[in-house]
């Protein structure tokens, strides 16, 4: 195990109050970040993800304990020293609409330039490399206000990278983005962690992406203790389920995602393969059926028959008395609901 770039010792985070005892958000946090690893901070709203991020970024003082960055106490560093080792991407709005992408990224050189902000050849190379690394060369010339949310986020990440940090902290970098953009940003961050040997910590609500991409997950349950592990470990030992437990929502360890706890409408077997079968299962689960793969002896059975070539799918619904055939999923769902509702079966 290599030495962590950043680690915390007995850290408590929260807000000091004037007259009352401080509001403690989380305590006894002992975590570390290794170079080259991508860590996702997950937890329900209000658990203190942002507080933890802000505290690690040196923007908020810890209530107790210490944060050590490259063997130095975080609180002992000047803002400029800190900025050369740690950069952030926040959810705050920026007023830099009339800067070009290149100029915005070049602000990342702030901790390295002299009083006038003059960029040396070294600075310019760093800016160009950062822009190339996030795949934003086509955005360098454009004004920031002409960029889409996803494009702006890329530029902001390039700016954080131009600081040449040992650690990059990102607060919900994929919020407000559509799925392809979220996947892209996550991919970029993974690449950065590997190639720049920089530790990347991001908070996110994107469970699926986090489970698939993170080297490690920090799980912060509400009022609980921060748990650290690989995504797979945390799923298997039930930590996920515990952290996100709430009324009406369940974490499904089979799929690694959440599902609504719909009242069970019945049991059904599903026979079939491929995408059609997968989405048939989703449709049935959505309306509350427990779906079993293969023939398991439930009262109803569905056979998915995909016709090669034409790309059309048929569904055979085998009921105790009869078998019906449907050409669309909607018809199938309608029929199965009709069949199992009490009025009809009576």
């Amino acid at each position: 195990m290599s030495v962590p770039i950043l680690h915390t010792e007995n850290l408590s985070i929260g807000y000091p109050m004037r007259k009352e005892p401080p509001v403690v958000v989380a305590q006894n946090i002992a975590v570390g970040l290794q170079p080259g690893e991508l860590v996702c901070l997950l937890g329900p709203n209000g658990a203190g993800k942002s507080t933890l991020m802000r505290t690690l970024a040196g923007m908020q003082t810890p209530l107790h304990g210490r944060i050590r960055l490259n063997q130095q106490d975080l609180s002992a560093l000047t803002a400029r020293e800190l900025a050369r080792q740690l950069s952030v991407v926040l959810t705050e709005p920026i007023n830099a609409g009339m800067l070009t992408g290149w100029e915005l990224v070049s602000l990342g050189r702030h901790p390295y330039t002299n009083w006038s902000g003059n960029l040396t050849a070294v600075d310019e190379t760093a800016v160009n490399q950062a822009i190339t690394a996030v795949g934003a060369t086509n955005l360098a010339h454009r004004h920031v206000n002409t960029l889409s949310d996803g494009e702006r986020q890329k530029i902001m990440i390039a700016r954080a990278l131009a600081q040449e940090p040992a650690i990059m902290l990102l607060d919900e970098p994929t919020a407000f983005l559509d799925l392809p953009r979220r996947v892209e940003i996550m991919h970029i961050l993974r690449q950065l962690a590997r190639n720049a040997q920089c530790a990347v910590l991001l908070s996110t609500h994107d469970l699926d992406l986090a489970l698939r991409n993170a080297d490690k997950i920090w799980l912060l349950p509400k009022g609980g203790r921060l748990q650290v592990g690989t995504p797979e470990e945390l799923v298997l030992n039930g930590s996920f389920e515990a952290a996100f437990r709430a009324d009406g929502v369940q974490f499904d360890p089979h799929t690694g995602s959440f599902k609504m706890a719909v009242q069970s409408a019945g049991q059904v077997d599903l026979v079939g393969e491929g995408l059609s079968a997968l989405w048939t299962k989703r449709a049935l689960e959505r309306v509350g059926y427990a779906v079993h793969d293969g023939a398991n002896g439930s009262a109803m059975r569905i056979q998915v028959v995909a016709e090669e070539g034409e790309g059309r799918t048929q569904w055979h619904l085998v009921k105790p008395q009869q078998t019906t055939t449907h050409r669309s999923l909607a018809d199938l769902v309608h029929d199965i609901q009709q069949t199992s509702s009490p009025q009809n079966s009576a």
Binding site: A57, M59, A79, N95, A96, L107
Partner: peptide, 16 residues
């Protein structure tokens, strides 16, 4: 220029 990004970002860039 750093303050264009807001005070929090400016601080994270090493600005007092």
């Amino acid at each position: 220029n750093a303050l264009l990004l807001g005070e929090t970002y400016a601080q994270s860039l090493g600005l007092s």
